[in-house]
Design a protein around this nucleic acid. Structure first.
Length: 992
RNA sequence: GCGAGGGUAGCCAAGCGGCCAACGGCGGCGGACUCAAGAUCCGCUCUCGUAGGAGUUCAAGGGUUCGAUUCCCUUCCCUCGCACCA
């Protein structure tokens, strides 16, 4: 019966499927005995890899554990298809993009003749659902109730999401507004980062626009450092570029509402489109060459100073407004530019600029910062040895100075109420104040070029969007309460949820295209993926039964009844009466029936999800539950999971750097894959798939299997003998004839049961499986050395140990554990209860005694090694009785040298031992200090000499020598005078 | 920068005030078994050591303590998240 996981696992898969073993329905067990675990539904925009395997195995192990604990356990799965990735993948496939084809063909082994089935979004999704995820999950042995699966594109699911969003809107948690998005000017639609060819990492920034003016004409100058407004010495324009004078709508950007809602702005030609995309009406009145602007004077809206407009070739007219302000005191760029302009001032005469005016420009400091002089930009330029505007060192100088000024710069007196404060703390406040007054405005732009896959230029556009108001204070309060109610695993994630709640503002919850549910009141929009996956766990509870209800009956009232219990107190449709004048609402009986099941399973006991999802999905999950459901339905726990590596590297399906579960399972078997994934780190830690170690794990399981089979076969022999009346299979306790080693192993077993159970309760799958498997293997190693395994007592012990361990390991390696357990007892491990510690087998004394023997063996070996001797005779001397008395005194007096000596010296007999007593007390004091009371008590009761005598045969075997055990004070044979070194629990040893 | 988590022997990784030179796995070395290989079993794997010992270690530096890998402070380094991406 060799270990053949393929056959064995196939049989169990079939058995589970045929019997519907994991289909969970409400039964006699009440709510406390039901457990509902979930994991984020997979997003089938590609195949399943080994990282997914772990994600889904973590909840499976817990589910299996709870089942053995007697719970009715529901572990469902569904499929998330909402949004653009699947649509995008199909587009790329249809266009025949090589990268995409290679991922499909080479990484995920899609057969050539199947490719065309993937050319519709749901066809694509279906392929990966059926051929990858479901197959993989079944192969892994996940205990899923398959009747409840659904996709987020199903019409009934959409009804459910529509209910959610209509309810949120009614509660005022949805709001319409403008929001900046990436927008392709060629396709004229918003695009996601997936759609970008260039600038994928680019983030748009909100620039402050400082409204310098010349009469009624505004020169809007974009900056990221609005606080430098008092340090501006001049403006720059590109004399060779084209500018426009245009009427720009500013109505949205005024708060007082008294002023004109349109202003005349001078901006670069490129800026016109940007402003229009950002929801402004722009009417171009006139085109002006940049050179015409040069030499004009503009007024600083904050200081009322007049400043010259200076020409500069470095001005990028494609960035923001194309008009920039110069702050030479604090910007190394501007410092260098000003130097160069001054040096070449005479050349400006051609623009009609007075060179003397330029030469007279003086930098103006607006903040002070430690470590720099009056003009920090000057120091920075010098420190970095910047030579010219094209010097690469300039960028480093700029970065460094910006950073330091932001965190350490203090504003000067001229800033009034902001004087003396650090930029970091006042920038936003200051900016808002000037904006309020109409001196500042804002616009978005990228810092670099961003190009769409279609080749079109991507700009920032403000689009009308619906937002979820996560910043609503009442909502935040509820969510916080949900967080404090939560069992957050590991505990330190709780803080992160709280932090996320404070940080979340408004979340745009719709998109212009993609799969999913249409916004119920505006079907132009689709509810985006992170927003249609917040309460779907509730949908699992009824997913397999709601199909019986026609879609058109799934009204808001239906879900109000089903999910909120509204009307469940009211008379049912059949018995509705209108006797009191008001028409009672008709309650849908079907909804009430479904509600019973919802009520039975809900809330979610544990949700297992990636730690990277704390800052969005998991917090949304908590928020929506807190808002929509009553407190008793809020999530009980969340376990977060770490990231996976493959041979120390990030997995990447595009590079083909992935392992598919199917391949791993064919090579090693599902139990090995599961065991490796769960045993190599705790769920929330990162893990690394290393083929070599997976192979070793398989070897370990195989060895375990072989040993187990041996025990089972022996048990069968015994029972055969039992059948013929010679030896009953289950001997009564009195007839077991257990020896010291048996009792020790059984005591260790009880420790193991306790530790594993505690670990499982905390989702510590690594600690649990290490304890049940590897650590117990160590105990067995010792046991095999210590005793004769052919004894009846040993057989009984090994059988008992095996049975218990199989039950402890069943959640991790369900195939092998169930099989072996069934062969051993007739029942699969999953059908019998989780082991309980048996107090009868707890035995601190025997554990302590074995520990003494272990130490003795180690000490003897140590001496053998260091002396390179091969002893004929080993003499062991247990400490004299008076030493035991000293030990007792140390225990009763406590580990205090002085106090102990005081007591000991009153004993005349002990006093006779003189200095030896003093030394001994010193050693015993530290011995006692290092141990707890219980251990000391146990030790004190042990007859050391008897322990060593009982181990003499064992020692003799280990070292192939004669073993003699003496008491130090009973006149031992002591040729080398070693006996006197004996101490309590540290016998003296002599080798000869 | 902000928030979270880390840095332990050749590698992975546990420990989180004394039982710690520090669990376990991998790798390496030696031995048993074997014709041989593999598997399995035993021992060793920081340095020194002809008696169970001593010395130096748990990113670096400082502190608290009778005692710190474990607690506190500072510094350096690494990973993850930071929004419209699932």
């Amino acid at each position: 019966m060799s270990y053949d996981p393929q056959d064995l696992e196939a049989e169990w898969r079939e058995r589970w499927a045929d019997s519907g073993r994991y289909e969970a329905d409400p039964d006699g067990r009440d709510g406390d005995e039901s457990t509902f675990v979930t994991v984020p539904y997979p997003y089938p925009s590609g195949g399943m890899h080994i990282g997914h395997a772990r994600t889904y195995t973590v909840p499976d192990v817990y589910a299996r554990y709870r089942r053995q604990q007697g719970d009715n356990v529901l572990f469902p799965i569904g499929w998330h298809v909402t949004g653009t990735p699947i649509v995008g993948a199909v587009e790329r496939l249809k266009k025949g993009e090589e990268d995409q084809l290679s991922v499909l063909r080479d990484t995920y082994n899609v057969p050539e003749d199947t490719l065309q089935d993937l050319e519709t979004p749901m066809g694509f999704a279906r392929h990966f659902i059926e051929e990858h995820y479901k197959k993989g999950m079944r192969q892994l042995g996940l205990s899923i109730d398959w009747r409840r699966e659904f996709t987020t594109n199903d019409e009934r699911y959409s009804k459910f999401i529509a209910w959610q969003y209509e309810t949120l809107r009614d509660r005022g948690l949805l709001e319409k507004g403008l929001h900046p998005v990436n927008y392709c000017t060629n396709e004229e639609q918003p695009v996601t980062t997936h759609d970008l060819l260039e600038g994928e990492d680019a983030e748009f920034q909100e620039y402050t626009v400082v409204k310098f003016s010349d009469g009624d004409t505004v020169y809007p100058m974009a900056t990221l450092r609005p606080e430098t407004v008092r340090g501006v010495t001049n403006a720059y324009v590109d004399p060779d570029a084209e500018y426009v004078r245009a009427a720009v709508d500013v109505s949205e950007h005024r708060s007082d509402g008294t002023e004109a809602d349109s202003e005349e702005w001078i901006v670069s030609a490129e800026a016109v489109e940007k402003l229009e995309l950002q929801a402004r009406d722009v009417e171009v009145r006139e085109t002006i060459p940049g050179s015409d602007l040069v030499g004009r004077h503009v007024t600083n809206p904050v200081t009322d100073e007049e400043l010259p407009v200076v020409p500069a070739g470095f001005v990028d007219t494609d960035n923001a407004t194309g008009v920039v302000m110069s702050v030479p005191a604090h910007s190394p760029d501007d410092w260098v530019a000003l130097e160069e302009v001054k040096a070449d001032a005479d050349a400006l005469a051609e623009y009609g600029v007075d060179p003397d005016e330029i030469r007279a420009i003086e930098p103006r400091a607006i903040l002070t910062i430690e470590g720099y002089g009056e003009f920090p930009a000057k120091d920075a330029v010098e420190e970095h040895g910047v030579e010219s505007a094209s010097d690469p060192a300039l960028e480093a100088a700029t970065q460094e100075l910006y950073n330091r000024e932001f965190h350490g710069g203090e504003l000067i007196e001229a800033y009034g109420e902001y004087a003396g404060r650090v930029i970091e703390d006042v920038r936003d406040e200051l900016e808002a104040q000037y904006r309020e007054r109409g001196d500042f405005d804002s616009m978005y732009d990228f810092a670099e070029e961003v190009v769409c896959r279609c080749g079109g230029e991507v700009e920032v556009s403000k689009q009308e969007t619906w937002f979820l108001r996560y910043n609503d204070s009442e909502w935040r309060e509820k969510t916080k309460r949900a967080i404090s109610n939560l069992d957050a695993i590991p505990e330190n994630t709780r803080e992160q949820y709280d932090h996320t709640v404070d940080w979340l503002e408004e979340w745009p919850c719709i998109r212009n295209y993609g799969l999913g549910t249409r916004l119920p009141w505006d079907d132009e929009f689709v509810i985006e993926p992170l927003s249609d996956s917040t309460i779907y766990m509730s949908y699992y509870t009824i997913a397999h039964r709601i199909d019986d209800v026609p879609v058109e009956d799934l009204t808001r009232e239906f879900f109000d009844t089903l999910l909120l219990g509204e009307g469940s107190e009211a008379p049912r449709a059949s018995e509705a009466s209108s006797g009191d004048g008001t028409e009672p609402r008709e309650v849908d009986e079907r909804a009430l029936e479904l509600r019973e099941e919802f009520d039975y399973w809900y809330p979610v006991d544990y949700r297992c999800s990636g730690n990277d999802l704390i800052s969005n999905h998991l917090t949304f999950f908590l928020s929506h539950h807190a808002e929509l459901f009553e407190e008793s339905k809020w999530p009980r726990g969340i376990t977060v999971m770490g990231m996976g590596l493959l041979e120390g590297q990030k997995m990447s399906s595009s590079k083909g750097h992935v392992v598919l579960p199917d391949e791993a399972i064919s090579e090693y078997g599902a139990d090995t894959v599961r065991f490796y994934l769960l045993n190599s780190s705790e769920p929330w830690q990162d893990y690394d798939w290393r083929a070599e170690e997976v192979g070793t794990t398989r070897d370990q399981l195989e060895r375990f299997w072989n040993r187990a089979v041996e025990i089972i076969e022996r048990a069968e022999e015994s029972s055969a003998e039992g059948a013929s009346g010679q030896r009953p299979r289950d001997e009564p306790a009195g007839g077991r004839n257990l020896e010291q080693a048996d009792r020790w192993l059984l005591a260790k077993l009880q420790e193991t049961v306790r530790e594993v159970t505690e670990s499982m309760e905390r989702f510590e799958t690594r600690a649990a499986s290490q304890t049940a498997f590897y650590r117990f293997e160590e105990h067995l190693k010792w046991y095999r050395r210590r005793t004769d395994l052919d004894r009846a007592g040993a057989r009984w012990t090994l059988r008992t140990v095996l049975e218990t361990r199989l039950r402890l390991l069943a959640p991790f390696v369900p195939f092998a554990a169930n099989e072996l357990h069934e062969r051993l007892t007739g029942e699969p491990a999953e059908d019998v209860p989780w082991p309980e510690p048996v107090p009868e087998f707890d035995d601190r004394t025997v554990v302590a005694e074995e520990r003494l023997i272990e130490t003795l063996v180690a000490d003897v070996r140590d001496i053998v090694d260091v002396t390179d001797a091969d002893p004929e005779t080993i003499r062991v001397y247990a400490a004299a009785e008076w030493k035991g008395e000293v030990f007792d005194t140390v225990v009763s007096e406590g580990p205090n040298q002085g106090a102990v000596m005081g007591t000991v010296m009153q004993d005349e007999e002990l006093r006779e031992h003189g200095n030896a007593v003093n030394d001994l007390v010193g050693d015993l004091v530290s011995f006692v200090r290092e141990r707890d009371d219980e251990t000391l008590e146990t030790l004190a009761a042990i007859d050391e000499r008897a322990v060593y005598e009982s181990a003499a045969d064992f020692l003799a075997r280990e070292f192939d020598a004669d073993v003699e055990v003496y008491a130090e004070d009973e006149d031992p044979i002591d040729p080398a005078g070693k006996a006197k070194h004996a101490q309590p629990f540290r016998p003296a040893i002599h080798l000869e």
